[in-house]
């Protein structure tokens, strides 16, 4: 099992803020909108250095999405910023009609996704957003794993012409992917080659999959670990190539089973290469208040949950 050097421990939302600030320097058409959460979304640097391109919309997310769609008419590339819950469920019809169906070049940037939002509780811990967003025709859905990758993804989506949902989070997590990496939308990243099981992880669960890989290696299980930072379009080729070798899969994500990465992988496998699949995900439940670590443990999203899922799926082979 390959080891990854942790450069530092940082929140993915700060990666977004750094990426957005970089875009402000690179591209005069990039515009940022925020619904009264500038500090939480780490959009302050952009606001400070590019005030003429920063739009404070107040606590009015529906209007923010509509205005973002309107800003594209005039050649702007709007990045909207608020919590994942208010970026998706609260404004689903606005995104559906004014952005997705209208084919607008809007980047919906969503922080505090999942249970790692922590103490605020279930009202704010959305676990359904990937599902909602991936169902929209033409929507790209990205969930990077660490600071460096979130920064790279933020910069990359400005070059992609079309609506994008970029999901990231609140807690500080190990930052281990290369600094200044090229982010390729839709291209899975093979982190560790293995032959016994394929672990497909996204977002905060990628680091936990790496931790699980070390525990599994100690048991003599050789795990192939792939970072699926783009849930839609899914890198079917990379996934099928791996599963043809390992013959079983575990998916890991901070999201509901319904509608998440596991659901996309199940669809792919059942149609193209049926193989045993276990999902590490929240199983039809809301979250609650607690620390991120406590919640990841309670809701079955921890390193040991991945290990157990691997053990279970390997038993189902043959």
């Amino acid at each position: 099992m390959k080891t990854f050097e942790v450069q530092n421990v940082k929140d993915t939302r700060s990666g977004f803020g750094a990426g957005l600030h970089e875009l402000g320097k690179q591209n005069p058409n990039v515009v940022a909108l925020c619904a009264d959460l500038t500090g939480s979304l780490k959009m302050d640097a952009f606001q400070k250095d590019f005030p003429e391109r920063f739009v404070q919309v107040g606590i009015a997310e529906a209007n923010m999405i509509g205005m973002a769609a309107g800003l594209t008419i005039g050649g702007k590339i709007p990045f909207t910023g608020t919590f994942a819950n208010f970026s998706t469920g609260r404004v689903y019809d606005q995104i559906r009609q004014s952005v997705a169906y209208s084919g607008k070049n809007v980047k919906i940037c969503a922080s505090h996704a999942g249970v790692t939002l922590g103490e605020d509780g279930a009202t704010h811990q959305i676990l359904e957003d990937i599902g909602m967003m991936k169902m929209l025709p033409g929507m790209t859905v990205i969930n990077p794993c660490d600071y460096n990758q979130t920064k790279a993804a933020t910069i990359a989506i400005a070059k992609h012409n079309g609506p994008v949902y970029l999901r990231f989070g609140r807690p500080a997590v190990p930052n281990f992917t290369p600094e200044n990496q090229e982010f390729e939308i839709g291209k899975a990243v093979l982190l560790n080659e293995g032959k016994d099981v394929t672990i497909l992880a996204t977002g905060h669960l990628v680091w936990k999959a790496i931790e699980a890989g070390h525990l599994l290696a100690a048991q003599g299980i050789d795990a192939e670990i792939i970072n699926i930072h783009t849930i839609k379009p899914l890198d079917a080729q990379a996934i099928l190539e791996s599963v043809r070798k390992t013959k079983c899969v575990v998916t890991a994500e901070e999201h509901q089973r319904n509608g998440g990465l596991g659901d996309s992988v199940a669809q792919l496998l059942s149609m193209s290469f049926p193989a045993p699949l276990e999902m590490v995900a929240v199983n039809d439940s809301f979250g609650e208040s607690g620390t991120p670590d406590e919640l990841m443990k309670k809701y079955g999203l921890d390193t040991t949950d991945i290990v157990k899922a691997v053990e279970a799926v390997i038993k189902r082979k043959n």
Partner: peptide
């Protein structure tokens, strides 16, 4: 046609965005 409409209440927001873009463009 520059935007889909039909689900009501969204057109003014879109127009405000387009108006902001015009201001930013010096149009």
């Amino acid at each position: 046609v520059r935007i889909a409409t039909g689900s009501l209440g969204q057109g003014v927001s879109v127009a405000v965005g387009a108006a902001l873009a015009k201001k930013m463009n010096g149009d």
